[in-house]
Nucleic acid binder design. Structure first.
Lengths: 121, 121
DNA sequence: TTATCATATGAGCAGATATTCATATGAACC
DNA sequence: GGTTCATATGAATATCTGCTCATATGATAA
């Protein structure tokens, strides 16, 4: 679309063929937006703690509140964000709502992420 | 540390043993902070586009600027964030600086993330 | 050295977001 | 029905963050 604008350098650095090749290999905008949104939701301290708890067991809001040591409203707000992003599932059980990780991809992302930060020492 | 505070429910919902078990299984605070930080840096539209470009080839700042259609300052700022987070590496080559993904974990995270958002249709 | 090119950085602003407080919903039990 | 308990939600605020503009750095070439 917008090829080489005035910002581009004009000598050895600029590789039009490579640029075009990479452009075509890249996923479409909507998919990239979805991916960024997924990681953005994962990228919060409170939500990561929630996910690490759910990594080990399905839990109700009350137990999560206790584990995190936060007030219930804050936890529920973050659970809503995680649910909207299809990162956790919920099911009702009497008065309670039980939360769990949505699917194996979420387990994988958390595991691989930890491997990376642990290697960085 | 802060066990069952006044916020917790007092009936069928609260499971002290499970809560304690999950607490012990969870990673330490610094590690969880590192993980949240990793995902936070991944969770930005511009940075995801940069990473998707680098997924296919090592690239200089100028080529990235052209691929993204953004001004060079914005791209450099985001590259600094990615470098600080150990998500990309850089090496000098004459006047240029070539960027690439840091290691296989980053490739894995992008791939698994895409699998997840694509399944969600 | 001086000029030029590629990249990096600092300050400032505009938009996004996590928490708190107060309140609403909705199911279970009396 | 009405009450209690577990969870959800709306509004407000304080903090954070990405972009732009201007400028700095650092390497190459003349």
């Amino acid at each position: 679309m917008n090829g080489n604008n005035a910002e581009n350098c004009r000598t050895a650095c600029f590789h039009p063929e490579l640029v075009e090749q990479v452009r075509e290999a890249m996923p479409g905008e909507p998919l990239q937006g979805d991916l960024a949104q997924l990681f953005k939701v994962l990228g919060d301290h409170t939500r990561i703690r929630i996910l690490n708890a759910l990594y080990h067991s399905e839990l109700c809001v009350c137990d999560l509140t206790s584990i995190l040591g936060m007030n219930q409203s804050a936890v529920s707000h973050q659970l809503r964000v995680l649910r909207d992003a299809k990162i956790v599932r919920s099911r009702k059980l009497g008065k309670n709502v039980l939360y769990s990780l949505d699917d194996s991809h979420i387990f994988d992302l958390i595991r691989v992420g930890f491997e990376h930060v642990q290697e960085g020492k």
